[in-house]
C-alpha cells in the first residue's frame, strides 16, 4: 500500500549570499517516513528545515503539508512541529509553564500538558526552571513542546548535537517512539551511525543542491557517502 504524501516541496530556494544558498529543490515525503538530511556544514540542511518550519521566508518555490499551502501559516503550524538545534525555550520559566503557554496558544486541552510531561518523563522537572536543566533535558522539553498540537510532520535540526552518549541514546529512543506513533520525521545529522540506525530514507545536500535521495542501503554503498565522509 502506498502511503499518502505528507510533504510536497517544489522549487524551494533561499539565497543568503552567492556562496551560501539553497538552490531550487524538489522532493516529496510520504506519511511515516523517517528521513535523515545529511551534508557538510553550510550545505543547506538547517536552511531547508527552517524553510519547512516557517522560520525563514523562501525566495521562491512552494511547500504543501497535508495539502495545505505553507503560506497559510496559522493552519500549517498545527501540521508541523519544529525542534531547533538550540532549544528556544523561555529559560526563566518552569518546564510546565513553557508547555502550558504553547498549549494555550494551540488551544490544546490542559490535559495535553500532563500527557507530555508524563510521556517525556518530565514530571520530576515540571516546576524546575529551564535554565537549570541539562542540554539533554532541554532538548526533551523542546521535543515535547513541538508535539503539543499533535502535528503530522516533525522537523528536528541536529537533535543530538552536543549531547553525550546516554542523552543521544535517549533522543534516539524518543525519535523511534514518535516515528512508531505514525508521525513523519525529517532530521538533520552529521553522525553516520545515527543515520544508519534511524533513517528509512536519506537526502544529501551539497552546496545547496540535493545530490542524493534514496534508501540507507543504497546511500552507504554510494560514492556520495564515500566522498562525504572520507
Amino acid at each position: 500500500m502506498v502511503c499518502p504524501v505528507t510533504l510536497q516541496v517544489q522549487g524551494i530556494s533561499k539565497a543568503y549570499t552567492s556562496q551560501r544558498r539553497l538552490l531550487a529543490i524538489d522532493f516529496s515525503v510520504r506519511e511515516g517516513e523517517l528521513i535523515a538530511v545529511v551534508g557538510h556544514n553550510g550545505a543547506g540542511k538547517s536552511t531547508l528545515l527552517k524553510l519547512l518550519g516557517g522560520w525563514l521566508v523562501p525566495d521562491g518555490g512552494e511547500v504543501q503539508i497535508d495539502g495545505i499551502d505553507q503560506r497559510n501559516r496559522r493552519a500549517i503550524v498545527r501540521k508541523v512541529g519544529f525542534v531547533p538545534e538550540v532549544p528556544n525555550l523561555f529559560e526563566c520559566f518552569s518546564v510546565e509553564y513553557n508547555l502550558s503557554l504553547f498549549a494555550r496558544l494551540f488551544r490544546a486541552p490542559s490535559s495535553s500538558v500532563e500527557t507530555a510531561l508524563r510521556e517525556f518523563s518530565l514530571l520530576p522537572y515540571r516546576r524546575s526552571k529551564v535554565r537549570v536543566l541539562s542540554k539533554g533535558l532541554k532538548q526533551r522539553v523542546s521535543i515535547a513542546r513541538s508535539l503539543l498540537a499533535n502535528p503530522s510532520l516533525v522537523l528536528l535540526d541536529e537533535p543530538t548535537s552536543g549531547l553525550d552518549f546516554d542523552m543521544t541514546t535517549e533522543v534516539h529512543e524518543l525519535l523511534k517512539r514518535i516515528h512508531a506513533s505514525g508521525k513523519t520525521i525529517l532530521f538533520t545529522s552529521h553522525r553516520p551511525e545515527e543515520i544508519k540506525s534511524l533513517a528509512t530514507r536519506i537526502m544529501v545536500l551539497h552546496q545547496g543542491a540535493l545530490i542524493f535521495d534514496g534508501p540507507p542501503s543504497e546511500y552507504f554503498e554510494s560514492d556520495t557517502h564515500r566522498n562525504l565522509y572520507t
Binding site: 518550519g53 516557517g54 522560520w55 501559516r73 496559522r74 503550524v77 498545527r78 508541523v80 512541529g81 519544529f82 531547533p84 538550540v86 528556544n88 525555550l89 523561555f90 529559560e91 504553547f102 496558544l105 494551540f106 488551544r107 513541538s146 498540537a149
Partner: peptide
Amino acid sequence: EKRLLLGLLQTPIR
C-alpha cells in the same frame, strides 16, 4: 536573538 519569537510563530498566534 534567542529565537523565542520564532518559537511563538510556530503557534497559531497572529
